[in-house]
């Protein structure tokens, strides 16, 4: 790791002003991606601004419309939350699949979504559920938030303070992990909300998380396995690496979509 300066933010405003003062600053959520990246000398921020002690970013709130999760909430808190389990069990299930227990104890939803790793789980839930990303500056629809590999609509000094997930009629998630990293090789989040069906895919696409329009079109307004049985997906949009060819990933997306629908 290169030299860096650590700053602990006490509030969202404090974090933003510390970021403004920094030459090349980075916000630190749980650090489950940023710190390994810094250890490998692939990132070298002059300053890191720790958001872990910002009280406003904690907590999970449920109301009739859905669930709002603070940006600083850890994966294990989401996985264990009775409110999340009641409103969107698929989201709780997804959170319990991220990393391992120790990573889940520290990693945060805000950090994961802001990082937008193309194989991370949360982006598929955001996109699949049509979530709203709430920042210290504005509210961004998930459809507009994820721009590309590790790229989002966030400005440099913008912080995800919370994410609002509307309550779906039905939702499910299925993940096929990369055998080595255990990140998603294909993770599919399906949701039916008010007659609208979304199929969001992580880990497989060439350009990060995306909505699989072929599956959405086949499903129409409701989730049924039979509707996608005959579909074969276009492999040209899929990522290829030593763990999986694009054809294999195209197959996995369909299989995981079926399993997510069955789980919903």
């Amino acid at each position: 790791m290169y030299e860096t300066s650590y700053h602990r933010a006490s509030s969202v405003d404090d974090a933003q002003s510390k970021m403004k003062a920094a030459e090349d600053g980075k916000f630190l959520g749980g650090g489950m991606t940023l710190i390994p990246t810094m250890k490998q000398r692939l990132a070298a921020p002059t300053d890191i601004i720790d958001l872990a002690h910002v009280g406003d970013m904690k907590g999970i709130k449920a109301d009739g419309s859905g669930i709002t999760i603070g940006g600083g909430v850890t994966h294990s808190e989401v996985a264990d939350s009775a409110d999340v389990k009641a409103a969107i069990p698929a989201l709780s299930y997804l959170a319990g699949l991220i990393g391992d227990p120790h990573v889940r104890n520290r990693g945060t939803i805000g950090g994961s979504v802001a990082n937008n790793d193309p194989a991370a789980d949360y982006p598929s839930a955001c996109l699949g559920l049509g979530a709203t990303i709430i920042t210290n500056q504005r509210q961004i629809a998930a459809d507009d938030f994820f721009v590309g590999l590790f790229e989002t609509a966030l400005n440099e000094d913008e912080i995800i303070t919370a994410i609002h997930f509307p309550k779906p009629a039905k939702a499910g998630y299925a993940k096929f992990p990369n055998p080595a990293s255990r990140y998603a090789m294909a993770g599919v989040f399906v949701a039916e909300t008010g007659g609208d069906v979304r199929v969001a895919v992580t880990g497989a696409g060439n350009d990060g998380v995306y909505r699989e329009s072929a599956l959405e079109a086949a499903l129409g307004g409701s989730l049924s396995v039979g509707a996608i049985d005959g579909i074969s997906l276009d492999a040209s949009n899929m990522m290829a690496d030593m763990h999986g060819s694009s054809e294999y990933r195209a197959n996995l997306v369909k299989v995981m979509a079926k399993r997510a629908i069955e789980a919903a």
């Binding site: 650590y6 602990r8 650090g31 710190i35 720790d50 120790h102 104890n105 520290r106």
Partner: peptide, 13 residues
């Protein structure tokens, strides 16, 4: 009180 990876945390944290 929670298990964490001490290689993925700064001492200052």
């Amino acid at each position: 009180g929670k298990a964490m990876k001490s290689c993925t945390m700064l001492a200052v944290q």
